[in-house]
Amino acid sequence: MSPRWGMVIDLDRCTGCQACVVACQAENNIPINTEAVYLQHRAIEWIRVERYWDGEYPNIKARYIPVPCMHCSEAPCEPVCPVYATYHTPEGINMQVYNRCIGTRYCAVNCHWHVRFFNFWEPKWPESLQNQLNPNVSVRSRGVMEKCTFCIQRINNAEQNARLDGGRPLRDGEVNTACAQACPTRAIVFGDLDDPESQVAQIANTTTRGYKVLAELGTNPSVLYLKKIDPEAPAHGGAESA
C-alpha cells in the first residue's frame, strides 16, 4: 500500500524562529530573496512563517504560523492547469512538473494559501555559491511555477533504498522533510498518515487540538495544525495582517 504523506504542525510548540525557512531554502535550491525581490513582493519561501498581531499594547501577542503547501486532496490548483503541469501523485503530494509548465499562473491564482511561486526571473547565484546547490533538486528556470514538494527528492531516495533493500515498506522516520528535520521545538512532524503506527498519524488521530486552515473550502489539506493554547487569549477579531 502506498503511503499518504502528511504533516502536523503544532502551533503551541512553534516559536517563529524560522529554522524551517532556511532549511527549506538550503534543501530545495530556492533563489536568494534579495532586497529587490522583497520590494517587488516576489519573495519565494516554500515554507514561510506568518506573524499575526493579536490585541493592543500592552495586552498584545504576536502569533506565528509556518505555512507550507497544504497538499490538498482536492487541490483547487490542479484542475485549472491547461497543460497538466500541476498534478497529484498517488502518494498524496501536489507536484509541479517544471518542464510542462508554461507559466499561465492560473494555479497560483486558484491557491487560497498563496504557496505557489512564479519565477519571474532566471534564478542567479554567484558562481561559488552554486557549489552548495542540491544535485537532487532541479533549479527552476524563468517562467515556471514552483512550490513545496514535501521534499520529494528525499522521499524518492528513501523509497529507492527500500526497494533495493528487498522491497520492504518504508519505516516511520526514514523520510523527513528539511523543515521538520531542522525544527528545534519539534513543532513540525512529517510522515505517512495511513500508517497508524507513524508519529504523524498518532498525533493526527488522537489530538483534540487539530484544525485545518481554510477547511471550509473543502479542499481537504494534508497539513493538520494543532491549535495554539493561550490561557489568557484576548477576545478574537482584533488580529491584524501578517
Binding site: L11, E50, Y52, D54, R63, Y64, I65, R209, Y211, V213, L214, A215, E216, Y225, K227, K228, I229, D230, P231, E232, A233, H236, A239, A242
Partner: peptide, 9 residues
Amino acid sequence: APIIEVIPS
C-alpha cells in the same frame, strides 16, 4: 475562520 486558532486550554 481565523488562520491561527487559539484555545484557552
